[in-house]
Nucleic acid binder design. Sequence first.
DNA 1: CCTAAAATGTAACTTTGCTACATGAATTCA
DNA 2: TGAATTCATGTAGCAAAGTTACATTTTAGG
Lengths: 282, 282
Amino acid sequence: MENLLATISTALPNLNKSEKKVAAVILDDPEAATQSSIATLALKASVSEPSVNRFCKRFGASGFPDFKLQLAKALVSGVRYVSSAVSLDDTTDEFTQKIFNNSIHALSQVRDNISAALVTRVVDQLVQARRIYFFGLGTSAAVAADAEYKFFRFNTPVSSHHDPLMQRMLASSGGVGDLFFCISHTGRTKSLVETAQLARENGATVVGMTAPGSPLAKACQWSIELNVKENTDEYLPMASRIVHLVVLDALATGVTLRKGEEFLPHLARIKDSLKSTRFNQE
Amino acid sequence: MENLLATISTALPNLNKSEKKVAAVILDDPEAATQSSIATLALKASVSEPSVNRFCKRFGASGFPDFKLQLAKALVSGVRYVSSAVSLDDTTDEFTQKIFNNSIHALSQVRDNISAALVTRVVDQLVQARRIYFFGLGTSAAVAADAEYKFFRFNTPVSSHHDPLMQRMLASSGGVGDLFFCISHTGRTKSLVETAQLARENGATVVGMTAPGSPLAKACQWSIELNVKENTDEYLPMASRIVHLVVLDALATGVTLRKGEEFLPHLARIKDSLKSTRFNQE
DNA sequence: CCTAAAATGTAACTTTGCTACATGAATTCA
DNA sequence: TGAATTCATGTAGCAAAGTTACATTTTAGG
């Protein structure tokens, strides 16, 4: 279910004359619309009340009050995401808000679409693996490094690599029981795709986190396919990296929970080991 | 303005008998409440309609419909964040949602509280710097590495370091024109605090991204102080790392915008340079 | 136990939104 | 081109929802 305001904007050209008027008034000031009565809104749009009512029903509401409710919801989750592309004449506050909104929006999208069943299955693989390798290049190298950091706390040997040659060597020497976790936003990085294929030919488990339908996704046994829209061409892929990190958080959490309660003291011990490196809390 | 549901929960003990009944019904199923009429709700709570009305006004609404509107909004932004701590008996779907919500929530908090003025000032420093170092340890090392990746695209020399000795050496050899960007969630890592002090004594610019009022924050000239609540003791600091990354995104964007339009082709060129490493888009 | 204030309910009234129907515009086909 | 049909829009009345003023009940203090 997309954002109501966006839906209205999209449908705008296909609307009747009076419906267009209503849409215009609502899009102009949605906040005000949520607080108007149907009579007020009809007056503002110079249409009759039933026209407004019909408009509401057209967009899936049961009536005007229900429509206002949906609109209010859309305003909270949605209005901030409108026109999120950073432009050169943005003020600091504007672009900062946009950057945050992009990430928040991307996370919401993935949260609402990620398959729990797939997460469970990948967690299964991670738990069963004898050894885990995280592979990524470019920005995804940092994600892979982060994953290593997260997973080393379990007893399974884990490492991350961002050197294509190293990746290839490891993939060719791997086999059953090894898990190769390949991270790529585009899923089109040649060397990584080839590495994934290589690992799979050797009988290793290959998991990908990448774009839907991409060559990398096809090369993997399990692939977490994320459709993150980057609305910035000039700058770096930012949203996808954040999403990757959070998905890995979810996977690490899944593994932790699978290991069960008796594993928690182990984690606490690791945490305690850092104490002496810190200033005390006052 | 806090979340309406939280406000009601908090006020619960101070309410009248009938108001308590109303509150109970609403808290029990807020979603249903947004769709009920005042009569239905009054019936469910076994109170009279005006009691419900009074309840609404008590919580700042102009009347029942307005209250429903606010409730609907609160549901979007709020209800998902309730009880976000992962527990051992969570299903995959539950903990996945929670993990995402934690990050989303943390980002929203920071988005609403970050000072644009401070961002501007830090961007100023980054633009002016002759050389930039990103320092982090542990999880923050990955953040620092990511920052290096983002900032190397500008013409300023930049590097990231996660070795405390290396950090110390660089800090002691740095001076005016060098910018040391220190990242630490807790702000209590001894070696990093000392490194920051050292760099500052030598006349370098020292920027921190850390917890408010922490030793590191005090040691830095400029500090981006982020109060991210980690609601997980056993697992890793996740939310803060995500927030750090997004703040760095914002800073990098700020630098890009400051460099202005003539800088965009440069970024495009970097992007193009990756083309040959990829499979073509079909 | 009585009084005053607070809390709650009752009933009348106002506003709101909806439905059925009528009118007007537009489109199609002879 | 003009009649017929369909679609779009408005009018009016009605039903429901919400609000206000007031009455009754409950509670607390003396």
